[in-house]
């Protein structure tokens, strides 16, 4: 479990123009959750993510991962093993020259023995569906495949939590779909707690809970369906509502009361529309 208490972070303190990135954040993340953190540019979502595995330390407040405080230097490596992190640009997080070597990188850092390492690399390759690419050089892979390599490299370390900081932002629609599928599978089949960071409302749909960040503060926190009801609020945070939800919202306002304004998927919309035929 992750517990964030009164977390604030200010960049550039020594200089004259401090930027307040996070203000008094309080958040608890339970095991097995699929949590989405959404916010527009500069809302503090990446800053928040980097606090969870100790890449950044709070200006004030505390972050606990399974009871370990990120400020405690002795726990730092244990925390980084528990909280895996995948970044936006797949090119800039692959270290080694072949897929399998890169997946082994984190395990080498942990000092795992070779036999165990082989087993974990095989498992991770199979989970992300890249077995036949194990000897490939990363630059020969597509964006979606590279990002899956990055995910495999993190999950091989057997983390309890997986943070993904806009992992789909640089991918084409196909790569985006591949990555989301893998994340869903990790959450549902492997029981890994997922903290998914995005600025795209469409990607919220798969999660159990959504936290909306605005200007460094938690603006909304709840189930995706409830969040989507607050269309005006979301707009004021510079977030786009998925087309299908927008359509449902408008139809509902025009008097088609059987159509729920929190419709998230096309199939749901089709079912509801069929009632009028």
């Amino acid at each position: 479990m992750i517990k964030i208490k009164n977390l604030s972070h200010i960049y550039n303190i020594p200089r004259r123009d401090p930027i307040i990135a996070l203000k008094e954040i309080n958040l608890e993340i339970e095991r097995g959750e699929f949590l989405t953190i959404i916010g527009s540019n500069g809302s503090g979502k990446s800053t928040l993510a980097r606090h969870i595995n100790g890449l950044l330390l709070p200006t004030s407040g505390d972050v606990w991962v399974k009871g370990m405080n990120t400020k405690d230097r002795e726990c730092l490596w244990k925390i980084r093993q528990e909280v895996g992190m995948v970044f936006q640009n797949p090119d800039n997080q692959i270290v080694a020259t072949t897929v399998e070597d890169d997946i082994a990188f984190g395990l080498e850092n942990m000092g795992i023995d070779r036999e165990n390492m082989l087993e974990r690399v095989n498992w991770a390759l199979q989970v992300v569906g890249l077995e036949e690419y194990r000897r490939f050089e990363p630059h020969l892979l597509s964006g979606g495949q590279k990002q899956r390599v990055a995910i495999a490299g993190v999950i091989a370390m057997h983390p309890s939590f997986l943070i993904l900081d806009e992992p789909t932002a640089m991918l084409d629609p196909r790569g985006r779909k591949e990555v989301i599928e893998v994340i869903k599978k990790l959450n549902q089949e492997e029981g890994i707690t997922v903290i998914f960071i995005t600025h795209l409302m469409e990607e919220v749909i798969e999660s159990n809970r959504v936290v909306v960040l605005n200007k460094g503060e938690i603006a909304l926190n709840g189930k995706p369906k409830d969040i989507f009801l607050k269309v005006d609020a979301l707009r004021s945070f510079a977030l786009d509502i998925p087309q299908i939800t927008e359509l449902a919202f408008r139809l509902n306002h025009k008097g088609l009361k059987n159509i729920s304004p929190s419709t998230l998927k096309v199939e749901e919309m089709v079912e509801q529309l069929c009632l009028y035929v």
Partner: peptide, 13 residues
């Protein structure tokens, strides 16, 4: 810069 952060996040020391 990004690679260094990613390596650190994977426990490289």
């Amino acid at each position: 810069d990004e690679l260094a952060i990613a390596m650190e996040a994977k426990g490289y020391r």
